[in-house]
Design a protein around this nucleic acid. Sequence first.
DNA 1: ACAGCTTGCCAAAGCGCTTTGGAATGGGCG
DNA 2: CGCCCATTCCAAAGCGCTTTGGCAAGCTGT
Lengths: 341, 341
Amino acid sequence: MNLKELSKHLGISQTTVSRALNGYPEVSEATRARVIAAANEHGYSPNTRAQGLATGLSRCIGHVISVGDSGEMVNPIFGDFMAGAGETYAAHGYDMMVTRVGQRDEADIYRRLKARGAVDGLVMHAPRFDDSRLPVLTELGLPFVVHGRSSGANTTYSYLDVNNRSAFHEVTQHLTSLGHRRIALLNGQEQLDFAIRRRQGYEQAMEEAGLQVDPTVMTQGEMTEDYGYQNAMTMLDLPEPPTAFLVSSIICAAGVRRALDDRNLRPGEDVSIATFDDCLSYFRNSAAQPVFTAMQSSVRAAGATLAQMLIDRINDPTAPHTQTLWEAEFVAGASTGPNKD
Amino acid sequence: MNLKELSKHLGISQTTVSRALNGYPEVSEATRARVIAAANEHGYSPNTRAQGLATGLSRCIGHVISVGDSGEMVNPIFGDFMAGAGETYAAHGYDMMVTRVGQRDEADIYRRLKARGAVDGLVMHAPRFDDSRLPVLTELGLPFVVHGRSSGANTTYSYLDVNNRSAFHEVTQHLTSLGHRRIALLNGQEQLDFAIRRRQGYEQAMEEAGLQVDPTVMTQGEMTEDYGYQNAMTMLDLPEPPTAFLVSSIICAAGVRRALDDRNLRPGEDVSIATFDDCLSYFRNSAAQPVFTAMQSSVRAAGATLAQMLIDRINDPTAPHTQTLWEAEFVAGASTGPNKD
DNA sequence: ACAGCTTGCCAAAGCGCTTTGGAATGGGCG
DNA sequence: CGCCCATTCCAAAGCGCTTTGGCAAGCTGT
C-alpha cells in the first residue's frame, strides 16, 4: 500500500493524505481522523526512501565501529551504548545505521556516508589523541557528536565524556590513602584519549602522594579478561609485586581477580583491585555489596544522552556546541583494603 | 555532487554515467574509466535513497534487538555478532540497520520495516519456543534468517543454530565421566529456545548416566555475572551442594568462579565448572591453556555466516531454505576435574 | 554497395513521497 | 447582495537515481 493507492481508496488527493499524516494544519480534523484510520487499517507507512528523497533527510543516525578484520576485540560496551542510544532514536523516529570498518579507512567511510546521504548525523566512537577524524567530520559539515574527547584537537565539537582524569585521580587517592605505594595500572590502549587521561589522573595522584610511578607495573592494551589475567600474573611474579591494581575495565578486573585466585591471594585482603565500571548490564557491580571498588559511569546513559545531543544538533546545526563532562561515581567495594606490607 | 552535475561536468548523459558506474556492458571501457576517475575525483557516491527508490531495494539489512526499557540485560554477544555480520555486509555493499525495541511490539516493528521499505531483509535474534514472530515474518514476505531455531514452530525458515542439545549432552557426559553425580545447571531464560535445548541435552545425559535431575540445582535467568555468582552461592549452601556447575555463558561462569573463590574452593579441584563459550573477543578462553572447560562456538562466525545466508536469500528468495547446524567444539580447560566426594 | 549487426550513447519515464502555488468552497460582514 | 478571507483541498513539480526504448555510427559479409 502506497500513498497513491491510499489516497485513491479514500477519494482524496495525495497531498491531503500526506498532510493529514504529517500533522499539517491545512487539513480538517475530520479528514485527518479518516486518513489516520485508513492508514492504520491498511498498515500504511510512508516509504522511507521516497520520503527521504523528497525531504532531503534520511532520519537515520550513523555509528561507525572499527573492528579489525582479524580477531581484534569488539568493544564490550558497544551493546549497552546502543541500547541507550536506540531508546532515544526510537522516541524521535530515527533509525540507527551501524557500519563496521577496519581502522584504516574510517574517515573515508564518513565521507561516503555523507555523499550517499545515508545519514543525517553520526556518533564518533573511541576518539584517539589528536584524532584525525575530527577535522574531516567538521569539514564535511555532517552533524556529529563524540563519545569521549580528543586531546590536542584544535577544532570545537560536541561531546559527552566522563572525567577520566578526575576519576582515576580519585580512585588512586583512595588506594594511596589505604597505604598502597606500589599500585599497578592496567590501562586501555594509550592511543585512545580516555586512556591517556586516566593515566594522567593516576600519575598525578601518585605524585601528590609522593610516590614514583614505575613503568614495570604499568601496561596498556586491549581490555580483555585475559589481558588482565596475564599482566597481573606477570606483575605478581616481580621481585616487588604491586599491592594494588588499578584497572580500566571491569572485564579486565575480572581477569586480575582470577590471577589473584590462582596465586591464592584474596582480593581486598592480600591485594587490592580498583576498576573503572561502565555499568554493563551483564556485568553488574552495584548489588547491595559491590564486588569491585570502582569509579562508575553508565555507558547506557551516555548513549541515550549523546543520541539526544545529536538530534538537537541536527535540528539546529548552528547552535553552540554542547560539551558535557560527567563525573564518575566512587563506590567502595570488597576488592580494596589497607596495605598490609 | 550528484549524477546530474557529474554528467554535465563530463559532457555525457546521466544514463551513461550511471551505467558506467554500475558496471553495465553498454559502455566503452574508455568512457567507463573516465567516469570512474571523475567520480573518485569529486567524491561522488550515488544517493542511497534515490538509488533505492529507483531500484526498489534498500541494500540494507535490519537487526531488531529487544531490550527492556528498564535495566534489562543487553545480550553480551551482540557486539561480536554484529562485527561478524558487518564484515559480510560491507563486502557486499549492504548497510546494517539496528532497531531497538521493548519485547512487546517486535512483530509490529517487522511490519513497519517492511511497509516503509526500510530493509531488504532481516535477522531475527533470540528465538523463543514456538515463536510468534516466525509466522508474522513468513507472511510478510520479507526475506529473513534466524540466529537459532524455534521448537514447535511449524513454518520452515532459514536458520543457523548451534547444536545446543548435543553440546550440553557432550559436556554433561564429560562431567559424569569424571564422577560427578550432582551437577548444577545454570541455564539461560527457558522461554528462549536455545536454553530449552541445552536443558534437554543435560537431562538426557544425566538420565543416561543413571542420575536424577534435581530442580533445586537448576535455575534459569538472564545470564549476568551476578546471576552466576548468586546462584552458585545459594547452591553451595545446600545440604548437598553440587560438585559441578554447568553454565550457559562464560560471563556467568565467571560469576560461578567468583563464588567458588569466596568459598575457598578451587575450580577444577574442589568443584568443577563447565560452560558454553561464544568465543567473545573480550573474554577469550582459548589461550594455550583454556580457563574453562567449554563447548565453543564463535558467535562472530555465526554473524558472518548468517549475513551471507540472508544475502543469498535476498538474491534468490525462492531458493529452498538453508538450515545449518553447527556442532560446538569441546575444549578441556582447567576448570574441571574428577569428583572427589 | 547495402542489409543487418553490434557498439556506444541518449532522452525521458518512473520510483513514492513532499511541497509549492493555486483553486474552490463557504461564512462573515459592510 | 457582493466582496474578502479562511478553510480545505488539489495538480503538478521535483528530489536523484535506474532503466526502457531508441537512435546513430561503425562493422561485417555478400
